[in-house]
Design a protein around this nucleic acid. Structure first.
Lengths: 130, 130, 130, 130
DNA sequence: GTGGTCTAGACCACA
DNA sequence: GTGGTCTAGACCACC
């Protein structure tokens, strides 16, 4: 599995790891029942503190995405928690409020916001064909 | 002016104040040249420390949205600061990273994100014809 | 890094810190990508409250000079934010108003002001060839 | 006497009054022994709080530029306090340090700073022929 | 350990 | 009265 960390981003590192594992599961790079890399090996690979990776794994366990088997490692679970449409809409709206405020402050046109959204959405494209 | 603060939110209080003032200016609840409530009176009204309000106002000054006049108060600027394209792109990107991160976690399709963006963009439309 | 603070000065402490860090970067005492002292350690060293140092760092972040990484520290940015001509002019004007005000009070001739400006500009020369 | 106040400036209003009176004396618009407008009439004319004008006058008295005669008004003094060259240089340097820091932060060339200085110096020109 | 936010309260400069 | 700065100390998120 290939993960890439952007160190200057607003998104915390543990969240980037979490995001990318979710994405890998969604597009079936990581399949159900498959073993994840160990916390320490992933930390070494990404040159991170192992506590950072541990936090990401811990949240994935809490979210029911992976399962931690003592002494054996972490494994992708069969059942993924699914957010319903209303829940997804509600949670996206929180971030979108920030976006709109920033757009107002910067005096952007709606068109410009759409363009920037499209640019950022490319990261999601690989996830759309699943 | 009516502001509402959610204390338990992820979004820091000073940011909520900043956002709501921006929106008030955008929808012309606050007009150009108009005086904002004083830092301390707004702090009293929202039951906050005055430094929290001061921080919000200070950022608005830095962003060229309002002007602070020593001993007299803060006023909405007549002429907004112009951000260049690169700066607008840079600052939008910071928020968009959060959006994409959330979308990945929620397993949204790009199409669904576009829909939600369009819904939120309506707040911007009302302001774009002026 | 050696900073010196004058507590009785007209110039606020956080501004003195900001200025000296800018100058340290300009004369390459602080290099690109280098880590700044932590907020709290610098506050201890200068016998200041940590919030005062935080305010200086925060402004440097806003001005695109340094980058703050949560839990890791603050770092000199590789690539400086580019201000457009209008913005540079606007911000220089603010300081120049103070200069002219002082020159009037001291009854200086324009020629004398020019001489003093040239003396001070030498600090900028050393940085301009890079 | 014609005074003009810029309300959005960094320079406090009382200081703008002080500056312009000094300048008027220097270019002999106001002559020695001449009566200044009363505090309240000047406050009315400039649409200011009379305390603001009073503060300007009070500092001019303290600096030995004008004299306040109880019940009769304020008058320009014969003897103006003269700053020697070294003193002028020292006081200009304080403000010039701020200018250089800002120029470094904005990544200005020395040439650009000179241009902006020249623009601001035009306010001093009327004072140079005395 | 790091930075980010918030509170409480103080003192100063300006109008 | 207004805003600007600074201190002291708290709690949180991140690494």
């Amino acid at each position: 599995m290939e993960l890439s960390i952007i160190t200057g981003s607003q998104v915390p590192i543990y969240r980037q790891i979490k995001d990318q594992i979710c994405q890998a599961i969604a597009n079936r790079t990581l399949k159900e029942g498959e073993k994840l890399p160990s916390i320490r090996s992933l930390a070494d690979q990404l040159v991170l503190n192992h506590n950072t990776v541990a936090k990401a794994y811990h949240e994935l366990v809490k979210d029911g995405v992976i399962e931690s088997r003592h002494g054996r490692g972490a494994f992708v679970l069969q059942q993924r928690k699914v957010f319903n449409k209303a829940e997804r809409s509600r949670r996206l709206k929180q971030v979108l409020d920030l976006l709109i405020s920033e757009a107002i402050l910067l005096n952007c046109t709606p068109e410009e916001v759409r363009e920037e959204v499209e640019k950022s959405l490319e990261q999601l494209h690989s996830n759309s064909g699943k």
